[in-house]
Design a protein around this nucleic acid. Structure first.
Lengths: 220, 220
DNA sequence: GCGACTTTGTTCCTGCGTTCACAAGCGGTT
DNA sequence: AACCGCTTGTGAACGCAGGAACAAAGTCGC
């Protein structure tokens, strides 16, 4: 019953495992039974050696000389990522972005289930999105307690994001995904991850413009 | 007229500069005139030493013993990131997520201007979002050529993302931000950056669950 | 049954990003 | 005018991720 696995998988690897999982699911749907690391790496846009190293964190799961069995590897990654278990999530801020997330079917198949959608605007309350009804923010703590939700997603305006973060943390949420353009402070034990869409665009634009002027002071 | 700057700013630094810029703008609006690296780092959620190293890429821009002048530093970062110059962007796929991006006011103040919104669904064509009218995809090449757009954002379903990517690249777009859950292939000279919302959630959930079982085989 | 080929799993190495620690420099004070 | 405290900017060490090369292992063909 020992686990010889180091049990600590690098975060970058986890992110790529999620990508592999998606590619493998597509391959399985296409009726494919085995893949080589090179092929899988090409489909995922990574280096073959890196892919094998990522997979090595799961223990040996390929056959030398042949490759990886698609269905087996998919199930293995699913198990490690915990896709089987359904995770209860709450989403606060049902604007355009919040609606997009609530409506995104991709989450359900990855083990995420939205058990509560909240907004402050009375006009939004009662709307049905993705099988859920939008509730007033007052009910946040109540729903989190009743559903034991461990994940909270913030898509509110920046001004109220911190207060929502505080309430989520106090209600028992352990992981928060923040789309608001502010840096949130959370107590120990609560993990906050930030996704800033405008920063992504900014970086993209910068590397693009940087590539256009690569020879300004080139040493002859 | 020489540029003693190494001229190559690490990508991770660029991403943080965008964050600093936002914090500095907020400080300036609040009437603040100077900040120390420690204070700025706390507001941005990073290490003070790392912040100073990031800023060192811009050349000396602080005063020892005092700190940084808020307005000056803000303008300096703006200049480096190229926020002044307006960049023409096209957005393909006006679903919930596309609408959220088109409607997001934060882009305009960062130098990004959407000059074309495109969708395949006839029902969406003609809608007005964020000051623009949704057009049919057929007009994509025409608009890119007319506006000289250098940035494309893909928020379409996964199945058509690659074909849109090909068309954007062929039309002359140099930088592509992809929200579709597929790995895109683009010709050399075209930079593709991917943002996968479900991967972010997956990583968040994984580190959260990993934290709950840290002592399974702990060596006494 | 044996050899050769293919592909995995691992190891080494290089480069980058991050963090710590210290010297340099400026303002305020006496 | 000189001292002192504070903060920046930079140099060095550490840790980590990424990439390439190699050995182990299994399969296919003869």
């Amino acid at each position: 019953m020992i686990q010889p696995r180091p049990r600590t998988i690098p975060e970058a690897t986890v992110a790529r495992l999620a990508v592999y999982l998606r590619v493998l699911s597509a391959l399985a749907d296409g009726g494919r039974s085995t893949v080589s690391s090179g092929e899988l790496a090409a489909a995922a846009g990574v280096n073959p050696a890196g892919l094998r190293k990522d997979l090595s964190h799961l223990g040996p799961c390929g056959v030398r000389g042949v490759g990886y069995e698609v269905a087996t590897l998919r199930d293995r990654i699913s198990a490690v990522l915990g896709v089987e278990r359904s995770r209860a999530c709450v989403l606060v801020g049902i604007g355009n972005l919040g609606s997009a997330l609530a409506d995104y079917a991709g989450f359900g198949s990855r083990g995420f289930e939205f058990v509560g959608l909240f907004d402050a605007a009375p006009a939004r309350i009662g709307q049905r999105i993705g099988g859920q009804t939008v509730r007033p923010i007052d009910e946040l703590e109540e729903v989190v307690a009743a559903t034991d939700a461990s994940i909270g997603v913030i898509t509110t305006p920046a001004e109220v994001a911190q207060s929502i973060c505080d309430r989520l943390a106090a209600a028992g949420v352990r992981s928060i995904l923040n789309f608001a353009p502010v840096t949130l402070a959370a107590p120990d034990g609560v993990d906050v991850r930030k996704v800033d869409l405008s920063v992504e665009l900014q970086v993209l634009a910068f590397v693009g413009q940087q590539r256009l002027v690569p020879a300004v002071g080139e040493p002859a």
